[in-house]
Design a protein around this nucleic acid. Structure first.
Length: 275
DNA sequence: ACAGGATCCTGGGGGC
DNA sequence: TGCCCCCAGGATCCTG
């Protein structure tokens, strides 16, 4: 999916387009999403203004004046965009929220249907769900908490970074990029990782995500921002998707290995497992 | 308890 | 050209 930088970009794009606006109409596709939209929600989202929009991990939360929350996850191929109502609906568009005035729509499109939109009744139930699902945000991660999360497990670092309870928002791309920046091998075990390496890894995560947000995220295939613009961070990849190409640090060919069910790209020379 | 694999979907690319 | 297999930015459930 869109990982943290992509979701952050979408949230920033959508804010000026959606704040103080409200939905007047909603249409659904006949294909079920992983988290199916419940029929009774349709009437509940109409009429009340959108007061704020924020990101938590890879999730987006739209606060409605009624107190209800629209909670969005994009799965692997989700797109949430505001477009002119006059534009034809693209294939795989599953929810269309028409905005007041009727000229624009908020559209949720998701080819693989791994994502979805859920309506929560109030702030308390929304926060309970998010805090149960997610660990801390990378930008306010307590170093001791992170170190404990890494060192307490027998999983490899790649799996640790993909675990949303350890740090929220990192996915396959930014896990590979962070490990490369930190000079750590993706298959190194969490419990074999030193405290100094944890510090290095944490700074690498922050550095990589910050730069990726500046570039509006990475567009590999389906990702677009809230206004349909693509991202540019894919031009700065050091490891992800660069199998056989030279490591920008040492020129060694990048290799790929399958870990935690995901392809993991790394430099065999400058990302050596600690011995 | 924990780690790894299978699974939910569709589409695109490579190999034959 | 066509077909088949594998792969893809994620999260959850099941198994050993």
């Amino acid at each position: 999916m869109p990982e943290l930088p992509e979701v952050e970009t979408i949230v920033r794009d959508l804010r000026p387009l959606l704040i103080e606006r409200h939905f007047t109409h909603l249409t659904l596709s006949d294909q079920a999403l992983r988290q199916p939209w419940q029929p009774e929600w349709s009437a509940q989202v109409l009429g009340g203004a959108i007061q704020s929009i924020r990101r938590r991990g890879k999730w987006m939360i739209l606060n409605l004046a009624s107190g209800r929350r629209l909670v969005v996850h994009l799965g692997m191929t989700g797109q949430l965009t505001v477009t002119s109502s006059a534009l034809p609906l693209e294939d795989h568009t599953h929810l269309v929220f028409t905005l007041d005035g009727g000229l624009e729509q908020l559209r949720y499109r998701d080819i693989r249907r791994f994502g979805g939109i859920t309506l929560y009744a109030d702030e308390a139930t929304t926060e309970a769900f998010l805090n149960d699902t997610l660990g801390p945000e990378p930008f306010d991660l307590n170093p001791a908490t992170f170190q404990h999360g890494v060192q307490a497990t027998a999983r490899c670092l790649k799996a640790v970074l993909l675990d949303q309870h350890i740090v929220a928002g990192v996915g396959n791309i930014y896990a590979d990029e962070s490990l490369h920046t930190a000079c750590l091998h993706p298959s190194q075990l969490g419990r074999a990782t030193t405290s100094a390496e944890c510090v290095r890894l944490q700074s690498a995560i922050v550095e990589v995500l910050t730069r990726a947000i500046e570039r509006r995220g990475s567009s590999i295939r389906n990702y677009v921002g809230g206004s349909g613009l693509r991202g540019g961070y894919q031009e700065e990849f050091r490891a992800y998707g660069r199998t056989g190409q030279p490591c920008p640090r040492c020129d060694t060919a990048i290799e790929v290995v399958r870990l935690a069910g995901r392809s993991s790209h790394y430099c065999p020379r400058c990302q050596r497992t600690a011995s």
